[in-house]
Design a protein around this nucleic acid. Structure first.
Lengths: 213, 213
DNA sequence: TGATCAGGCAATGTATACACTGATCGTGAA
DNA sequence: TTCACGATCAGTGTATACATTGCCTGATCA
């Protein structure tokens, strides 16, 4: 593994997991010492992070972890609704129905994962991730897929502001199942509607349960 | 001006203007000699370009200019329709009407610019750019604005595949005027429709007149 | 006492030397 | 003649030394 990849992965993880709070200044020398690599790969890592929007170049004086808060959630979800709604519609038009039928069946069984402890909950998140991947694959539009990928990074950050309780996860699983079903049925409008409904509920839950920092 | 900025600007321009064809391998040493800077700023420039999608890291063996062709146009416009349609609608909801009324009036006068030579044609492009900027400003959604900015880079590239004749430019000016008018009137649906119509016509023209490379 | 200027310092920006990896070309053997 | 193995080399990956910039601090003058 390249040193720059290591530095990038470590910093990215630290930012997403809120171990590096927004506004934190990431000095090159400091980070290179902390991560055990030289300044060069750190610079490349910071450059990549800035391109993603996780950090912001602070004019000559290092880069800082980009600020993100509940204020950004509305903007974030506005874009998310646009992109993922369109993606779901396209997936319904172009996707292989069998794949989504299978995902639908799995999502209907998902609540069983959520009653147990933490380990199987990871399986649930992985299942939702597979639905996202299947949609990305089905739309066969690399630009749209790319736009959604870059958006999800920021979503993971704001998500950390809220706690996912079992009740919400059960509901979310049902919503995801509805999306998969709509795509499997080949109904674009329905798939888009199910996605927008899901996003709206996620947003409401996020706003209702957030823990201020 | 920093050397890395210089290298970035030069390479970006060369790629967009098709002086560097898709598939061209950009070796670090070669480019550093050509641009008169050392490898370090060239590396940073290439890193930024790859983040934008203009170049692609070719696994250990340098980076290559990302391939783009007519095949990509449909994907590109699919995303563009989604983003810019939404942006126009939001601008109609949130923008200051006066600004767009003014742009509308200017766009109605635009055909006068297009009868003359090349210099005033640049003014026309600048005017359209101001409309884009006004929409970006009006939507007050940095994530959406960012997504559109990164999309426009690729659009400029494919645009070079087609020649803009005077007839098309006249029509485009009228379409832009319609968009500005709809936004000024505060009608989201109308603004979105006008935008989608404009994009569809641009796409048709592009496909009809492209010169194969 | 406050403001301004100069000097130092810390951090980034750039260049270059060195390391390592993957490819290509040549040579030898089957 | 062809295939395989090895050596050379080109080119990237990393480290570090040097240059430059901008801020901060302290001292001096008004």
């Amino acid at each position: 593994m390249r040193a720059s990849d290591k530095a990038y992965a470590a910093l990215r993880e630290d930012i997403i997991e809120w171990r590096l709070a927004p506004g934190t200044v990431l000095a090159e020398v400091e980070q290179s010492e902390r991560l055990g690599v030289s300044r060069t790969p750190v610079r490349e890592a910071l450059s990549r992070l800035s391109a993603e929007g996780l950090t912001t170049a602070a004019g000559g004086r290092g880069v800082v972890v980009t600020d993100i808060s509940l204020e950004d959630i509305d903007e974030l979800f506005e874009l998310r609704e646009t992109l993922e709604g369109k993606a779901a519609a396209l997936a319904a038009e172009r996707g292989e129905h069998g794949i989504f039928e299978h995902l639908h069946a799995e999502l209907l069984d998902a609540p069983a994962m959520l009653n147990d402890g933490d380990p199987s909950r990871r399986d649930y998140y992985a299942l939702v991730g597979r639905l996202d991947d299947a949609i990305d694959e089905a739309i066969s539009n690399s630009y749209l897929a790319q736009a959604m990928r870059s958006l999800r990074v920021h979503l993971v950050r704001v998500r950390r502001l809220a706690a996912d309780d079992a009740g919400r996860l059960h509901a979310a699983a049902a919503e995801h199942a509805a999306i998969a079903e709509a795509i499997a049925s080949g109904k674009p409008k329905l798939a888009e509607a199910a996605t927008i409904l899901h996003l709206y509920r996620s947003l409401s839950h996020l706003k209702a349960t957030h823990t201020p920092h």
